[in-house]
Amino acid sequence: MAIIVFSGTVDKLMPVGVLTSGAVAMDMDVDLFFTFWGLTAIRKDTVDANSRFSKDFEDMGATLSQLMKQKQVPRWSDMVRNAKKLGNVRVHACSMTYDLMGMKKEELDDMVDDIIAVGEFIDRARDAKITLFI
């Protein structure tokens, strides 16, 4: 399974964590390509502290965040970390966004395996049975 993670809001990152977990459970390899707002979501300073919600559901963001906390739903980032322990999950940072935003390797969370360009990701994704853009 290959996912292009474009979004940086929790409501869209949650499915990234859930789907990655499911794929690993089903014994599939997973490639996650974090680009644009997705890349900002895997910075060390935001990865676990992110509380942004999509603008179109902004009014429900606070309630949902509170519910998830209260019901001890794991963070999307912890789901990805756990999936990495259980199976073959590779987390790629998009080099274009990385360069554009002037980021440094040490600013990225430890879940990141490498910084790659689009060609390599497409080459990895070409054989994936499931390809998603989130």
Partner: peptide, 11 residues
């Protein structure tokens, strides 16, 4: 626990 946690705990 909510999906996918029960399955992940089983795995």
């Amino acid at each position: 626990n909510y999906c996918p946690m029960p399955l992940m705990k089983l795995v």
